Structures are given as structure tokens and as C-alpha cells.
Amino acid sequence: MYAYLGRSDVLDMVDATAPCRPPMLSRHRFRSLIRLAAAAACSIALGAPGHAAAPDGAGYSPAEQAALALLAPGEIANPTEVSVADAQAVVETNPRDADAWHQLGESLQVAGDLQGAVEAYRKATRLPPEDIGRAYLHRDLAEALEQTGDLEGALAAARVSVRTWPVSSQELFCMGAEVMLLTRLLVENHDAKGAAAFFRPLAEAADAPQDCRTIAEALRAAAQ
């Protein structure tokens, strides 16, 4: 559901001549970790001491902050225009439709009702989908859980998303949303070693872009 920032995009968010502060929200909602990424990059750029605040209140090392800045999600990609009321009406008509519950989850998430979105996504994962692969259902559940601050629950859902890959003939790609999400959640749960081990083989693929190698190096540093 979300786009991802490249290394240059994250650094461009920081004005090295201005006080460190979270970026302003655009017309589309930015995820909470965008603010964390900007704070982390700002701290690194200015040599400021201390840790950026983690979603669960714990601190991250400077190396973990740098890795999270590279893994931070961007603004919503193609946010749904289906209203909560319309999505709810479809669910009431088709209560066994996983795709309808997923749509309701998206609508609630865009509307800012994260707990409602989590409940809808959970319902979707328990039903047989027709159009949306299970990997996507668990991925979007993981993203919503991450937004609520439930990092352990988000990590569990992200693991299921990756385990149920590939979808059709697709293979995991180092810059894919599922890969970036699981890698980020491993770091957020203070398992940088696990994140590095998971991400490194994908970054070493022949067709992997340089951004993947940059992330892999940041994860290696965070794991030390």
C-alpha cells in the first residue's frame, strides 16, 4: 500500500541549516516512521547525540537509526477513494468476502481509524480471498499494526506475508514493499542481525539496484 523513499529522498528531507524537526505532512498521510526517519537523518547529519524515539518508546543506536531512515516508508501509493460508509455497506452485503474486508481496512486506515483497520484486515486474513493474494492481506495488516505501535504483532504478520510469497511467478525483490517492511520491523524489534541476514542475499542479486546494497551495508553496521 505504501511507496518507499530512497536514500537521497530521506536526506533531502533534512535541512542541515535548520533545527531538527519532523517534516510537515503532505496532502497524503505520511507514516509515523517518516518523522522518525527525518529525526534520525537529522541527528546523523548534525552529529547530534542521543537516540530518536522508537515507536514503542525504546531507543535505537545511531546505526539502527541510519538503517531505519533508509527503510522508512513514503506516502501512501494510490490511496483508496472508497469511503468507509461505502466499504462497510459492501461488507454487510458480503460478510464472507475477504476482498471486501480488505477494502474496508484500507478505507479505515486512510480515514485514520487504525484500530478499525486492524480489525478489518484481521478479518480479511481469516477468509479465502479471490482477487487479493494472502501475502498482500498480511502485509497490509502488518503496516496497520506498525502504525498502532504493535511492533511484535506487525512483525508476526510481516513474516507471514513473506512466507506466503511468491505471488504467482513473482520473486521477492530487495526493494519490494514486503521485503522493506519485514526488514524494517526486524530492526524496530531490535533484531538488526536478523534484518541483515534476511536482506543481504536479496541485495546481492544480480539485478539488485545500488540502493539495496546501501541498505545492506547500513544493516551490517547496525548488526555489529
Rank of each mutant, 00 (worst) to 15 (best):
L36Q: 15
L36A: 15
L36K: 13
L36R: 12
L36N: 13
A37L: 13
A38I: 08
A38R: 01
A39G: 15
A39Q: 11
A39R: 00
A40Q: 13
A40T: 01
A41R: 11
A41Y: 00
A41T: 03
A41K: 13
C42N: 05
C42Q: 06
C42R: 10
C42F: 05
C42V: 06
C42M: 07
S43G: 14
S43M: 12
I44H: 08
I44T: 07
I44R: 15
A45P: 02
A45E: 02
A45W: 02
A45G: 05
L46T: 10
L46F: 05
L46G: 11
L46W: 00
L46Y: 00
G47V: 03
G47R: 10
G47W: 15
A48N: 07
A48D: 13
A48V: 10
P49S: 07
P49M: 12
P49W: 09
G50L: 04
G50W: 00
G50Q: 08
G50P: 04
G50I: 02
H51F: 12
H51M: 11
H51C: 15
H51W: 08
H51G: 14
A52T: 02
A52K: 02
A52D: 03
A53G: 13
A53F: 01
A53V: 12
A53H: 04
A53C: 08
A54R: 12
A54K: 11
A54Q: 06
P55V: 09
D56A: 10
D56P: 01
D56K: 13
D56F: 10
G57R: 09
G57D: 06
A58H: 14
A58V: 09
A58W: 14
G59D: 14
G59N: 09
G59Y: 01
G59Q: 15
Y60D: 13
Y60G: 09
Y60M: 13
S61D: 07
S61H: 08
S61M: 07
S61C: 06
S61F: 07
P62I: 01
P62L: 12
P62R: 07
P62F: 03
P62W: 11
E64I: 00
E64C: 00
E64M: 12
E64W: 01
Q65F: 01
Q65W: 01
Q65P: 02
Q65R: 03
Q65A: 06
A66W: 04
A66M: 13
A66T: 03
A67K: 00
A67D: 03
A67T: 04
